[in-house]
Amino acid sequence: MLTAFKTEIAPTKEQKEKIIRSIGIARFLYNHYIAYNKKLYKMYQRGLLDCKQKHFVSANDFDKYVNHKLKIKLP
């Protein structure tokens, strides 16, 4: 049998803003990750990428992309 626990939180105004901001950032990064992979796959389908080049970016590689390139582009 599985058990579940409900927990109620009562964040302050500043904490609510930070939670909303964090969720927004996570949504932005997820959508950017999906769009980036779609772009790579379409390039692969059209023959713009070699067989040796990746047509899919893993989460770790995307994390490196975010920290080195996207972070500079969008501070």
Score class of each variant (00 low, 15 high):
Y30Q: 07
M43Q: 14
K64F: 13
I9Y: 14
L49G: 07
H32N: 15
L40E: 13
I19Y: 11
I23E: 15
Y41F: 12
I25N: 15
V57K: 00
T7Y: 09
F28P: 00
L49F: 07
T12N: 11
Q45M: 09
A4Q: 09
I72G: 01
A4H: 12
T7N: 05
K6G: 00
E8W: 03
I23A: 15
E17H: 08
Y33I: 09
P11L: 11
K42F: 14
K71A: 14
K73A: 07
R21H: 11
K18R: 09
F56G: 12
Y30M: 12
I72H: 03
K39N: 06
C51D: 14
K69V: 08
K42D: 11
T7H: 07
N67F: 05
H55K: 12
E14Q: 10
S58K: 08
S58R: 08
F56S: 15
L48H: 11
Y30C: 03
C51V: 11
L2D: 00
R46S: 04
N37I: 01
K64I: 13
A26D: 15
Y41V: 01
I25G: 11
K13H: 08
A26Y: 10
N67D: 05
K69G: 00
K18I: 09
F28C: 03
I20D: 13
L29S: 02
K18E: 15
Y65F: 12
Q53F: 05
F5C: 06
I72S: 08
D50E: 14
L74Y: 12
F62C: 07
H32M: 11
F56P: 05
K73V: 03
I23G: 11
L40Q: 04
K69Y: 10
L2V: 11
L2K: 15
I9K: 13
K69T: 12
K16C: 11
L48S: 08
D61N: 11
L29H: 01
D61Y: 02
D50K: 04
F28E: 09
N67K: 15
E14T: 07
P75L: 09
L70M: 14
E8A: 06
P11A: 04
N60C: 07
V66S: 02
K54Y: 05
C51M: 14
N31C: 06
K69D: 08
K6T: 04
Y36R: 13
L48E: 15
D63F: 01
I34F: 02
K71C: 06
I9H: 07
A35W: 00
K69C: 00
L48V: 06
Y41D: 06
N31V: 12
I72P: 00
I25A: 10
L40W: 03
T3C: 09
I9W: 02
E14C: 01
Q53H: 01
K13P: 02
R27G: 01
L74M: 14
K16F: 09
N31Q: 13
L2F: 10
Y33D: 05
I34S: 03
F56N: 13
K38V: 00
R27T: 05
N37W: 01
L29R: 02
L29C: 04
